[in-house]
Amino acid sequence: MEATALGIVIKAIIILAIISAIAGFGTYLERKVLAFMQRRLGPMHVGPYGLLQILADGIKLFTKEDIIPQNANRLIFGIAPAITAATAFIALAGVPVFPDFTIPEFIPLLGGTFVPSVAADINIGILFVLGMMAAGLYGPLLAGMAQANKWGIIGAARTAIQFLSYEVVTGLSILAPIMIVGSLSLVDFNNYSSDHAWLMFTQPVAFVLFLIAGFAETNRTPFDLLEHEAEVVSGYATEYSGMRWGMFFIGEYANMITISILAAVVFMGGYNDLFFLPGWLAVLLKISFVFFFMLWVRAAWPHVRPDQLMWLCWKVLMPIAVINVVVTGIVMMV
């Protein structure tokens, strides 16, 4: 069925509403998961089991004083958080989240509208998502440079080296699956895994590399050197407070979800029906598992040093990724 403009608008609203809600709820989940792993209870006081903590956090963020440092460049200082949030959500336009579905007829006004699996089904979806996430580096970068703070500058410099280096690994690791599937469209990836084995079994090396690089690109714990509290106070976000800081946070969580969706669609079979599970539930479980995995790693592993980060990227991960691409090519040709 042909996707109508209305269907695409509905899809975009679904993505925006669900992802920004989950991104907020993700902070609660993160604190709870970390607490249980450290034998604590985590947030308990606001609402049952601390479920309303997110609401309290929201009120706190909105009512905090919005401080702009004296020597900061006010315009860029204000734009930077918006860049992070915007690029994170634009990247989501290119990923298929749920299967195609048609809104049932009994719902007034919208009944019978066909909602496609992906908001913008461009043929090069996977490159678009990676490119948009690459553009996301300007958020922390400009924030660090605009705030007239030495910690901020160090945070910005780390942003540039970390994101630039790990983009290489992400791109190379995902190149081997692209060669196997022979398409850059994420919908094709999903269709491929409906009648082949999941790519995480045929391309285990690429899967592990993609996850590691995904951690670095979303600024997750073994590699969260951009705002490493113990070293650079809060890195690029040192001078930010209130809602501006919240936008960085929402962008970061949206990026985590994008990486989770990419891992689920590319490597873990996407939104195809799994045994008795319907497709939408299967993909939700997969996405949640990758998201949980990110929190799990945060609880289990310490930070790395910046020089270890670069060593890992250029001397370990990138050569493995290149070898993986070459071996995949040889196997495909023979």
């Binding site: 043929n123 490159l127 490119g131 690459a134 553009a135 580096l137 983009e167 791109g171």
Partner: peptide, 13 residues
């Protein structure tokens, strides 16, 4: 589309 995305990745990224 392809060139557009390459522009994004190479020049912007």
């Amino acid at each position: 589309d392809f060139l557009g995305v390459v522009q994004l990745i190479v020049y912007v990224g």
